[in-house]
Design a protein around this nucleic acid. Structure first.
Lengths: 341, 341
DNA sequence: TTGAAAGCGATACCAC
DNA sequence: GTGGTATCGCTTTCAA
C-alpha cells in the first residue's frame, strides 16, 4: 500500500494534522517541523490518496455556477450533457452545481444569471459566454473577487478568465484543408460556406482552411467564403447558386451551421455522395446526413467534454490549487465518417 | 447532498450494517426488513457514494494479474502504458496489479506467467494472449476457479473469458475502405499489404476492407492482398514490385505492420505524398511518416485504452459484481492525419 | 504552534 | 438476523 499521512506523522513524531498542514502549506507549523515533514514525504514518495481527500472534502459545501448560451442548438445540447454528467460526478464529491442554460445569444439574460449565481454564493464559474463587452466586463469584476472563471466553447480572452476549454479552430480548419487536399483532384474547385463573417470561431475555421489549402494544394481553386447566418435555408440557396455557377465544383467546406441546407441542395441536384462535403459537429441531423452519404467527413469538437472539463478544472483548482496546464485547454479534433461514428 | 446509508438506516429504524447487507444482497437479513429497506432506498433514489465505497474497500487487499505478449512492439508499449496508468489509479484504491510483460509471442512463457500469478493469489486476470490452444485451455481452467478473465488487444473467444477489449477489426477495415473510396479516383487501383494471412485480426481488417470497397466503389481495382510478415524489409520489396508492375497505382492499404517499409519504398520512388497510404496505429514511427506526408491517414485503435479498460472492468466486477455490457468491449476507431495528432 | 478528535460514506467483523 | 464498532486516508475544527 502507498504511503499515508499517518505513516509520515509517526516517522516525524508529530500528529497527522501537523503533517497535513505542513504538506499543504496551510501555515501554523514551525518552519523546522514543516521542513522535516516535507523531507520525509519526499523520501517516501508520498502521494496523497485522492479517494481519502475527496471523502474528507465532501463536507465543505462548495458551489459552482455554469452559464451556457444558445442552449437550444444541437451542439450546445451535447455540451449541456457534459455539464450534467460533471454535475453528477461532483455531487458525489459534495459539490453543488448551479446550471443556468440560456436560449439564444442574450447578453442581458447572461448578466442576470451571473448576478443570481453570485448571490447564491458560488465559489467558481464556468461560462459559455456571448461575445459582448458587458459580459466581458462583468466577468472581470467577478474574477477580482477571487472567483475563478473558465470560459468554454466560446472564449472571451479579455475577461480575466483562468482558462478556455474548447476547440482549436485554427487547427480544425487546417485539418479540414488537409482532408480536402486528399479528396479533391489537384485542379479541382472547392467552395466554403460559413455562419457569420464576424464570428471569431467561424472566421478562424475559414481563414486557416484557406491558408492551409493554398499552401498544400495550390492547384485547387477556393471560391470566396460565403456566410449563411447559420441557417439551412440560406445555405440551401447558396449551394444551389454554387452548383449552377460552378458545374465542376468538387467539394464544399461548411465551417458552421447550415450543413443540412447544403445536403438538401445536393440531394435536389442528385449530387449528394458525389460532391465531397466536410462539416462540423456530431449532431443528430449531421449523423443522418453522414449515414446517407451527403456529408463525407465530420470534424468533431468533443462537445460533451467541453461541458465536462471546465467543472473538473474548477474543482481541482478550488480543492488543490492546481492551475490548468495552459491558458488554453483544447479539446481534441476527431474525425468521423459513416463508419466510425 | 445525496442520500446516504445512514439516512436510510434511520428511516427504516435499523442499523447501517443491515441496510448495507440488504441493498447488496449479502444475506443475513430477514426478508421483510430487506424489502422495507430496498423500498426506502428506491423512494429516496439512493445511489451509493463511490468515493466512500472506494475508501472502505481499500482495506480488502485484492490482486489483479496482467499478461501482455509482444511487449517489445511499438503498439504494445502503448498498451503497456495504459496498464501502468490503470495500475496507478487502482493502487490508490487498494488494488495491487501484478504486471507480466512478455517479449514476442511465446505460449510457454505465458503459461509460466499464468502459474506465477495464480500462485500469487490473483483475484482477476487481464491477458493479451497468444493464439495458442494450450493458453486457451489454461484460461478455461482458471475461469473454472471463478477468477474472471478479460482478453485484450487479441481475443481468444473459446477461452471462457468474461469479455474482450480491443478493436473491432471488421469495422476498422470498412472505415479504411470508406476513406479509400473518397480519396481514390473511381477507376483507380489499390493495393493491400497485410502482416500474416493466418492472423485473425489481420484477416478481418483485409476481408472487410475488400468487401466494403467492392460494395461502395465497384470501379476501383483491388489487387490481391500480400503478406509481409509484419516486416518492413519485406513490405519494402513488395511495394517496389507493386510500383513496377502497376504504374497507375493510386493507394496502398497497410493492414498490419510493415508500414515504414512501404513508406521507404515510396520515398525511393519519389511517390510519397502522391500515392495515398492508409495504415494502422499511432506509433512513434508512424507519426513521423504521417508528418512527412508518406502516410495519409492512420486508423488508431486506442492502444492505451486497451491496457487501461480491462483492469477497470475487473475492478467493477470484483467490487460491485457489475458485468461488462457486452462480451465485446470495442475501443473506438479514431482517424488521425498530420493535423490532428 | 501543536495534537486530539470528529467526521465524510461505506464495509466487515464480531458479538449478541 | 441484527447492531455496534473499527477502519479506510484525509481535512478541519477546537483545545491546549
Amino acid at each position: 500500500m502507498a504511503v499515508t499521512l499517518k505513516q509520515i506523522a509517526e516517522i516525524a513524531g508529530v500528529s497527522r494534522g501537523t503533517v497535513d498542514r505542513a504538506l499543504h502549506n496551510r501555515g501554523r507549523v514551525s518552519p523546522e517541523v514543516a521542513e522535516r515533514v516535507r523531507q520525509i514525504a519526499q523520501e517516501l514518495g508520498y502521494q496523497p490518496n485522492e479517494v481519502g481527500q475527496a471523502l474528507a472534502r465532501s463536507r465543505r459545501q462548495i458551489k459552482l455556477g455554469v452559464v451556457l448560451q444558445s442552449a437550444e442548438t444541437p451542439t450546445m445540447k451535447i455540451v449541456a450533457q457534459g455539464v450534467r454528467q460533471a454535475a453528477q460526478t461532483l455531487e458525489k464529491q459534495g459539490i453543488e452545481v448551479l446550471f443556468r442554460p440560456i436560449e439564444s445569444v442574450d447578453a442581458m439574460r447572461e448578466l442576470e444569471c451571473l448576478d443570481e449565481l453570485l448571490t447564491a454564493g458560488i465559489h467558481g464559474l464556468a461560462i459559455a459566454p456571448a461575445d459582448d463587452p458587458s459580459v466581458c466586463e462583468r466577468l472581470g469584476q467577478i474574477a477580482e473577487r477571487d472567483i475563478p472563471i473558465i470560459t468554454f466553447n466560446a472564449d472571451l480572452p479579455q475577461s480575466k478568465r483562468m482558462c478556455f476549454v474548447g476547440q482549436d479552430n485554427d487547427r480544425a480548419g487546417r485539418t479540414a484543408a488537409g482532408l480536402m487536399a486528399m479528396m479533391v483532384p489537384q485542379n479541382g474547385t472547392v467552395a466554403a460556406i460559413t455562419g457569420h463573417l464576424c464570428n471569431d470561431g467561424h472566421r478562424a475555421r475559414c481563414g486557416s482552411f484557406a491558408d492551409e489549402l493554398s499552401r498544400i494544394a495550390p492547384g485547387i481553386t477556393l471560391l470566396p467564403v460565403q456566410p449563411c447566418s447559420d441557417r439551412d435555408d440560406c445555405a440551401y440557396e447558396l449551394t444551389c447558386n454554387l452548383l449552377r455557377e460552378h458545374p465542376g465544383l468538387s467539394a464544399i467546406y461548411v465551417a458552421a451551421n447550415g450543413q443540412h441546407g447544403v445536403c438538401e441542395a445536393l440531394r435536389a441536384a442528385e449530387l449528394d455522395g458525389t460532391l465531397r462535403v466536410i462539416a462540423y459537429d456530431v449532431t443528430r441531423q449531421n449523423i443522418d446526413d453522414l449515414k446517407q452519404g451527403a456529408i463525407s467527413i465530420l470534424i468533431d469538437q468533443k462537445a460533451q467534454e467541453q461541458g465536462y472539463r471546465p467543472l473538473m478544472l474548477l474543482r481541482d483548482y478550488l480543492f488543490s490549487g492546481t492551475l490548468p496546464n495552459s491558458e488554453f485547454y483544447y479539446t481534441g479534433i476527431t474525425l468521423k465518417t459513416r463508419y466510425n461514428l
